[in-house]
């Protein structure tokens, strides 16, 4: 464990050095995603200028939802996104050989080798959006409530990671996965526009249990606004545990089928 932590710290330092060479790119992720979330806030504000609720969700809850989605996305960008995003490309080109021959877990190295500090301001901006939403929803955020919310956000960041690993392990079996990545983008886009609480029937099963993007921002939002039952939280935690176990198994299963295109 200590050896792994030292290794992760070394990867972060190496990444910092590389980032200093391209200083202009430092805050690209922040600017791009900041605009994306600002636009979504504008869209929801336009709808709420006409109505006082969407389903049971007030304006404040919707702002928290956008802020939470932004926070999970920002943590994803900060920690692992830029490391694992090109797994399909590495499989296709045979570049994964370099990772498999090193005496550390290839997944650990991929996960932490491209930590992107430029996304830190996006985490701070997300926290501000959530704070504003909580005040609009008249939620008094106590320390235990805040800590519980933060724990759920981290849990959902893990779930997002699981989904990315699962989808990016499919190319071990089929080599090309451009289509899968585009489908992922479309699904994330849909779940960014629609809070999970609004899903019913087929869509609820699909986005809560099969492709659980629907719970990622919804459950922490419902927790902060005290509108989720303990059973709902337990189901979300179990879903994350199940997907984490499956993601790790599927990654190892995929590795066994790696054909090393370059050799």
């Amino acid at each position: 464990m200590r050896k792994n932590l030292r290794f992760v710290w070394l990867l972060i330092k190496c990444k910092f050095t590389r980032m200093m060479m391209y200083r202009a790119d430092f805050f690209h992720a922040f600017v791009n995603d900041g605009i994306l979330f600002a636009v979504q806030l504008l869209a929801f504000s336009a709808i709420y200028s006409q109505v006082d609720s969407i389903g049971d969700w007030s304006y404040g809850q919707m702002i928290i939802f956008v802020g939470t989605f932004s926070a999970v996305n920002a943590l994803n960008m900060l920690i692992y996104f830029f490391g694992i995003v090109d797994i399909p490309g590495k499989i296709k080109r045979g570049d994964l050989d370099l990772y498999l021959t090193k005496p550390v877990s290839p997944l650990l190295r991929l996960t932490f080798e491209s930590v992107n500090v430029g996304s830190l301001p996006l985490v701070a901006m997300s926290a501000l959006i959530v704070r504003y939403g909580a005040s609009a929803a008249n939620v008094d955020v106590s320390l235990p409530l805040g800590l519980g919310y933060a724990a759920l956000v981290l849990l959902m960041t893990l779930l997002w990671y699981d989904m990315e690993i699962i989808l990016r392990s499919i190319p071990f079996l089929v080599i090309t996965a451009n289509g899968i990545m585009r489908v992922e983008g479309e699904i994330i886009g849909l779940n960014f526009k629609v809070p999970g609480a609004l899903y019913k029937g087929f869509f609820k099963i699909l986005f809560y249990f099969l492709l659980p993007y629907g719970i990622m921002a919804t459950i922490p939002t419902q927790f902060l606004t005290r509108s989720v039952s303990p059973a709902g939280i337990a189901a979300a935690v179990l879903t994350v545990a199940a997907f984490t176990a499956f993601a790790l198994w599927f990654w190892k299963f995929g590795l066994r089928h790696y054909k090393s295109a370059s050799s």
């Binding site: 709808i47 109505v51 969407i54 389903g55 969700w57 479309e186 849909l190 629609v194 609004l198 869509f203």
Partner: peptide, 17 residues
């Protein structure tokens, strides 16, 4: 799929609105 996705999102969201 993108066209369908946009319409599905609108249908779910506006049905609730």
């Amino acid at each position: 799929l993108a066209t369908v996705g946009r319409i599905v999102a609108a249908w779910i969201l506006w049905r609730a609105v």
